[in-house]
Each structure stands twice: as C-alpha cells, then as structure tokens.
Write a protein that binds this DNA or RNA. Structure first.
Length: 575
RNA sequence: CGGGGUGUGGCGCAGCCCGGUAGCGCGCUUGCUUUGGGAGCAAGAUGUCGAGAGUUCGAAUCCCUCCACCCCGACCA
C-alpha cells in the first residue's frame, strides 16, 4: 500500500468531546469518525485494525470447533415475546414497525434467532453438540453511550451459541471456550484477566468475563494475589465478619445520645465532626422496592466506609429504585442525610458488617442531628434481614479463604455463559435422545466485543506520541518513510524496492510517498501506532544502510539495506 | 431519565457579563523558497455564530422554547 493511495486523516488536536485517551487517539489517528451518539464510521485505517482483530477471533473460533454463520440484524419482535425477554430488555431494544405494521427489532444479541434456527434444523442427539457463531453488527440503544467505540450503541460483536444433549457436555464446551478466549486475548497482545461474573439480563448460571486491565475501565475487579480467585466486584462476596466489631469497633455499650451535627450529612463528615472512626458510622439508604400493587419503603444499612452493591441488594429486596426526597420525608419525617433506622418500623436490611457493629453512629431522623452509641437489640430491633449487600473493598478476606482481596479496573471484552435451558425451554428447542425421548437442549453463549477491543487495546497501549498497537492488530506492520521522496531518485528507487520486497515477503508495509516533511510523517506513523518504521534517506544509502526504529524504541538502529527484509521478518516473529 | 456543562469556518479556541462591521491559532488553496522531527514568506478561500420565536433602531451577546453533544449516576460486549 502507498500512502498517497490510501486515506490518512490524522488530526493535530483532538475534538473536545472525546474524554478518554483511546477515544481521542482513535479520532486523532483517523481511525473513526462520529456519525451520531454512539454510532461511528470506521475509516479505512480503523477498519484495518478492526479486521485484524476480527480475523484472530475467527481463526481461534474455527480452531475451537465452532462454525460460522450470519444471522440477520433485523428480527421479528414475536421471537422476543416468545422468549419472554421483550419486556425485560426494555428501551435498550430498538423496535420499529415495517410498512405492514409488523413489529421488528434491531438485534442486540441473537439467542432467540439462533435457537429458532436450531429448533428447526436439529432433531437428534446425533446432531449434537453444535456451536454456531457470527461476527456481526449489534445495536443496543444504550442510555448513555460514551468513550467512543468502547460503549457505542452500534458495535461489532462475535457471538457464539452452543447446543448440547447434556449439561456435562455444555460444561466441556464452556471450558473449551474459556481456553479459546484466553488464547484469543493473548494473541491480540492484551493484558487480561478472566473473572467470575454476574449473569445479568442474559440469564443462566455459570459465567466468566474477560477483562482487559486498564485504569480507565468501567468495571472493578476483585482478585486475590494469594490464590486464583478473581471476580467482578458486582459479584465478589463480602464474607461475613467472624469477630464482633471486626477488630475495629470496640464493644462499649455506651448509652444512646443525640448529638447536633449541623450540615453534616455524609458519614465522612459526621465521623470527622464527632471525632469517631468512619467504621463506626452506619449509613441508611432509602429505596422503594417493587411489590405487588405498589412499592415498599425499605432501609438498607451499610457501614459508613462501605458502598452499596445494587446487584446484591436487588437479589435480597427485589427490583428497587432509590427513594425520592418526598418519599423519605413521608416515611421518616426527615430529609436524607440525617436518616437512620432507630424508630423506623418498616423493613430494614442490614449488611453483614453492620449486624456485628455496636455503639454505632447513625442519623437521628431529625434534621441536623445524629445518634451515637446506637446498639441493635437495645435501641432498635435486630434487623429483619442480614445479607451481603455491599461492594468488597481492598483488604477484605478472599471468599476462598486464602488471603485478602485487591482491586483493579478492567474493560469487559468477553463474556461466556452457561445458559442452560433458559431459552431452549421458552422456545421449545428440543431433540430426541437415544431412547427416543424428547429433551430440552442445554445451551451456552459466548460473546466478544470486537470493536470494543480496538478501544481497549489503545487504552492499554499508548504514550505521549500516540497509539502503540500490539503487533497483531496494527493497521500496518511497517511504515517506510523516505526522505525527500519527490526529489531524490536514489531514495525513491530504494524505498520502492524495499516496499516491493516486503510485500513479496508477506509483510504488511505502507510506503509513505506523500512528500510530506519528515516531521509530519514521523508524527503521523507514531500517532497511528505502526510498530515498525524504516527511514530511507540519502545519507544512509551512501553506505548501503537503512534506519530502523520500533514504535517503543528510544534509539534508531542502522541496518544494511540488503538485510532489512530479513531483519523485519525476525522482528515480526518476535513481536 | 435525574444532576452538571458546552454549542462561533474542517479542528482547537477568544468574543457573550457590559448589544453596535465576527476574530485568533492550526488546517485548506495558489506561488516561491525549504526538506532528518508537525517549515518560511506572500496572496487567498471558507461562517444560516446549534434551531426557532421574542425584546431592540440594532442580537453571537439579553429573554423564552426546542435540538444536539459532552461529563457524573442506573445498563452491557
């Protein structure tokens, strides 16, 4: 490829609406352009990257025994009614009507469609197991698309679905996918981690997420350095404290007292104001839980230094939303910031760590006042429900009993589920077993966010000059940068010869024949993140040499022109 | 959807408080020079100031409505 025939659309300054590095760099390097919120055009340079990711994913899926097919993006809504997922998916599902007033959706995922295919095509245990996958554009009408391609509404995804005659066989395939995914992310050159995950809206039982480790990641991961335990914080269990007070709160059974705490609404402020440790405060979070025929006001109690885990809480109290100010005043006679469970006679759910506290500090249900020396069983009844409803924090004991947890951040790029019979049952996807008996198929599903990987790779690989792509997914492997291309015939000839030689050797090289100034050519290729650069200049050619520099190298090295192809081949193998 | 913010040539911004000829840098076009780290000189082109309504002799600037986008929260690959 010659630069003059390609399309290079680099920008000196990043558009101001891009927040995180990967988004800014993708815009600046001319990989993508925004069309509408969360919807992007992949410019030729970006498309090359996307295709390289896609091909690695495809190769490994094929190698793992999955079979590629392509399903429609547009799906009849009836299928979603049949699976029962239509209402649950909600407004994220983009729905529309065709000219005959028939309802359709643009597929956010394809469990329904694939199950429909399989239920029509597969009848016998002899045809199982089967694993189908596709690499296709999805649409999810995200509430808040952001971070460019990392959370777009339209995005490219690899989604695979496996069908089995038995759970044991599903487990086998699940492990197979776990290994394949690990291989894929290794080949992509990413630092990643597989973590146990919540199953979310897709449903099912076993589930692992694959996260690219990056500080800008939207997910928090808890892991134990002393064991192989790793889980999404959404799921990671905060184990019940074994000792009363967990070594931090001392049992004093002090009398309950009301203290004026003007304008101190946050636990941090109250603790500092009263000169007490934050771990002695209890925060009360008011929620409205869905109940038949209306909603119920519920107080969730957490230790002051802990955060609510809404997913865990949802499993205890059911679907809920945060209570509005007027609802709080209605139930407790006081506005948020000074509320507490003392004197409240509705439903109270306490976190496990709260249940073992004594002499707590909590809101007095009176504006400007908090209570100290509050004790369960004396000042208020023991909480009706004690459960794990908080996020784990650094230093919590690992749920596997081997050491303590640490936290890091990640970008979810893959997710594997054991769906079991959830969809197969709803859509009556059955087969005849060896006894000729009708059985519901066991199902697994496996997703990879192909377009998101591009963003994640850049989050992980960049410096002050631009993108540092892993060798496997860079748009070009080598950039040939000639000096004074327009005027120097020797340079032109040498650069052309090297270009031809590299192409013949199967190396994806681009020749920068734009006759730009050297500085802007260097800047462009560094911004775009090409791993290898060869400068062809008259000075070097006089002694038969070319200059090589890797994207992360600090110094360039001179290589004999005749050796350059072999030299690069070696570099590409190492990379 | 709740809270916060921003919309001015392709990109980055100033101008807005205090109404009076729409500006700067980069980029773009042409010419000459230059050619190993985003060149220099000269000459140019490019704007419904997000949209609509209003106040006013006069609106980018003040008022109202709407739209788009960004950030923080609940969703997910």
């Amino acid at each position: 490829m010659r630069a003059s025939q390609f399309f290079i659309a680099t920008l000196k300054e990043a558009p101001s609406d891009a927040e995180i590095v990967s988004h800014q760099l993708m815009l600046r390097a001319g990989l993508i352009r925004r069309l509408a919120g969360g919807i992007y055009t992949w410019l030729p340079m970006g498309l090359r990257v996307l295709r390289k990711v896609e091909n690695i994913v495809r190769q490994e899926m094929d190698r793992a025994g999955a079979i590629e097919l392509l399903m429609p993006a547009v799906q009849p809504f009836e299928l979603w009614e049949e699976s029962g997922r239509g209402p649950k998916y909600g407004p994220e599902l983009l729905r529309f009507k065709d000219r005959h007033q028939r309802e359709f959706v643009i597929g956010p995922t394809h469990e329904e469609v694939i199950t429909d295919v399989v239920r029509r095509e597969i009848r016998s245990y002899r045809q199982l197991p089967r694993h189908f996958y596709q690499i296709q554009t999805k649409f999810r009408d995200e509430i808040r698309p952001r971070f460019g391609v990392m959370r777009g509404r339209e995005f490219l995804m690899k989604d695979g679905y496996s069908f089995h005659a038995s759970y044991a066989d599903l487990e086998r395939e699940y492990r197979n996918m776990y290994d394949s995914y690990s291989r894929i992310f290794s080949r992509l050159g990413l630092k990643f981690r597989a973590v146990a995950a919540d199953t979310g809206a897709i449903g099912g039982t076993g589930s692992h997420e694959f996260h690219v480790l990056a500080d800008s990641g939207e997910d928090a991961i808890a892991f134990c350095p002393a064991s192989d335990y790793a889980a999404n914080v959404e799921l990671a269990e905060a184990v019940a404290p074994t000792k009363v007070g967990a070594g931090e709160t001392v049992k004093l059974a002090a009398p309950m007292e009301k203290k004026a705490t003007p304008n101190k609404t946050k636990c941090e402020d109250v603790a500092a104001f009263l000169g007490l440790p934050l771990t002695q405060t209890v925060k009360a979070i008011a929620v409205m839980a869905e109940k038949e025929g209306g909603s119920e006001f519920v107080l969730l109690l957490l230790r002051g230094d802990h955060d609510l885990n809404e997913i865990k809480a949802q499993k205890v109290v059911g679907e809920f939303r945060f209570a509005r100010d007027e609802e709080i005043v209605d139930a407790l006679g006081c506005k948020a910031g000074y509320i507490g469970a003392v004197g409240f006679n509705g439903r109270v759910v306490a976190d496990r760590s709260v249940a073992v506290m004594s002499d707590c500090v909590c809101g007095a249900n009176e504006e400007g006042y908090h209570l100290t020396g509050v004790n369960f069983g004396r000042d208020l009844p023991q909480p009706e429900t004690v459960a794990d409803i908080r996020n784990v924090v650094e230093g919590d004991p690992s749920p596997d009993g081997k050491g303590t947890l640490e936290l890091c951040r990640g970008i979810e790029v893959g997710h594997i589920f054991q769906l079991r019979t959830k969809y197969a049952e709803a859509l009556k996807c059955t087969f005849l077993d060896e006894q000729g008996k009708d059985q519901v198929m066991e199902m697994g599903c496996y997703g990879i966010g192909v377009s998101r990987i591009v963003g994640a790779a850049i989050e992980q690989g960049h410096d002050e000059r631009g993108i540092v792509f892993p060798a496997g997914i860079a748009p070009f492997a080598v950039a040939i940068v000639p000096m004074n291309y327009a005027k120097s015939e020797t340079v032109r000839a040498a650069a052309g010869a090297l270009h031809a030689e590299l192409l013949a050797a199967g190396i994806d090289a681009i020749l920068d024949d734009r006759d730009e100034r050297p500085g802007s050519m260097f800047a462009d290729w560094e911004l775009i993140g090409i791993p290898h650069r060869v400068v062809v200049g008259e000075r070097g050619l006089l002694v038969g040499k070319l200059e090589y520099k890797g994207r992360s190298d600090t110094e360039a090295t001179m290589v004999a022109a005749s050796e350059m192809t072999a030299f690069l081949k070696q570099k590409l193998c190492d990379g």
